[in-house]
Amino acid sequence: MIRLKSYLLLLICVLIFGFKETSFHEYKIEGFAQGTTYVVKYYAKRETVNKNSIDSIMRAIDESMSLYLEQSLITKFNRSESGFKMDHHFMKVYNEACRISKETNGLFDATIAPLVQLWGFGPKKIEKLPDEMSIITALNCVGMNKIEKERMFLRKKVPCVKLDFNGIAQGYTVDLIASFLKQRKLKYFMVEVGGELYVNDIKPNGQAFKIAIEGPLNSELNSNGIKHVIEVKRGAVTTSGNYQKYIMNGKQRISHHINPKTGYPLENEMVSVTVYAKDAMTADGYDNALMAMKVEEAIAFVARRRDIEAYMIYTKVNGELADTLSSGFKKMIVN
């Protein structure tokens, strides 16, 4: 009788815990925001988050940092002569932008807005490419040291300084959505906005989320494909590259990545940089800065840090494509 009870108890436990995985359902939310697409995928016993809640977060960030909204805080700051009072979203991104700018010796600079617009990658269209004098003039308006923070107020030291958070704001968006999902007690999820993503834990079935790393397949940079597949159990992966967003001037390809120190588009060997970090805003900021470095400098920079790993695609002297990666990133590759 005792053995029979033990057997029944074991059978009940197997039934309960064996079917625990099937009690989770996959929920997927998709949409369009910030000029790109987004996907939120989570696993739960019932629907916990809907599209309206995600879109509400997107709108809040746009109202703070979108260069394409006339009434956003960043637009009001950029148009002002002296500065503007910001919200907590803006200040979080601004503080992180300052930190990464300092860490990268100014290669990441959120005051690059005048140069971005000058080269035709801003909200307004241009009729011709800038001349040397226009670039010199714009450089006088660039530099994180041209802004002072007084609590929630950002004060301009020079009236022409303007901010552009496009190199970091999507990462913050991903982090904010991830934080919201955690607040709703969700454990298994993935958030992706415009290719920048965050993964929280493995799937309920024990499998890790697999992420495809894309990149150019030839030296002409006109063909794109999957370079590697990685597994991420928790953390963020973001990518920055110059082979998809550019303008042509005759046969010259002009990158949308502008060097904040010279005022000219990048012409180094970097083609694409993918960064892994604990959060998406950190990864997003560093992938842009690494794009502005030479390969050897970028490898050394990542090796000195414990908070990021990186995979880089670059062009060799003979024009052929090559890649390199940090030791930590190599461990994540499954294909």
Rank of each mutant, 00 (worst) to 15 (best):
I2F: 13
L4S: 13
K5S: 13
Y7R: 14
V14A: 15
L15C: 11
F19I: 08
K20P: 00
E21S: 07
A33F: 07
T37E: 15
V40W: 00
Y42C: 00
Y43M: 06
R46S: 11
N50G: 05
N50M: 02
I54Q: 00
R59E: 15
D62M: 07
L67G: 02
I74M: 09
T75K: 06
E81Q: 14
F84Y: 15
F84N: 05
M86P: 05
Y94W: 14
K102M: 10
F108K: 05
T111F: 13
A113R: 06
L115Q: 08
L115V: 07
Q117M: 07
W119M: 06
K128V: 13
M133A: 13
M133F: 12
S134M: 14
I135Q: 01
I136W: 12
L139G: 03
G143D: 13
K146Q: 12
K149Y: 09
M152R: 12
M152T: 11
R155S: 12
V158H: 12
K162G: 01
K162I: 00
L163Q: 05
F165K: 02
N166G: 15
Y172T: 03
I177E: 07
I177K: 02
F180L: 00
K187F: 08
F189V: 00
F189C: 00
V193S: 04
G194Q: 11
G195V: 06
D201C: 04
P204Q: 05
K210V: 06
K210Q: 10
A212H: 07
N218I: 06
H228M: 10
H228A: 11
V229L: 10
K233H: 11
K233R: 15
T238E: 06
N242H: 04
Q244A: 10
K245M: 06
M248E: 10
N249Y: 06
I258E: 03
Y264L: 11
P265I: 03
L266I: 15
L266W: 07
E267I: 08
E269T: 02
V273W: 09
A277W: 08
K278Y: 12
D279G: 06
M281L: 09
M293L: 07
K294L: 05
E296I: 01
F301S: 03
A303Q: 10
R304E: 14
R305S: 10
I308P: 09
I308C: 11
I308Y: 10
I308M: 15
M312C: 09
Y314K: 01
E320C: 05
E320T: 10
A322T: 03
D323N: 13
I333K: 01
V334H: 07
N335Y: 11
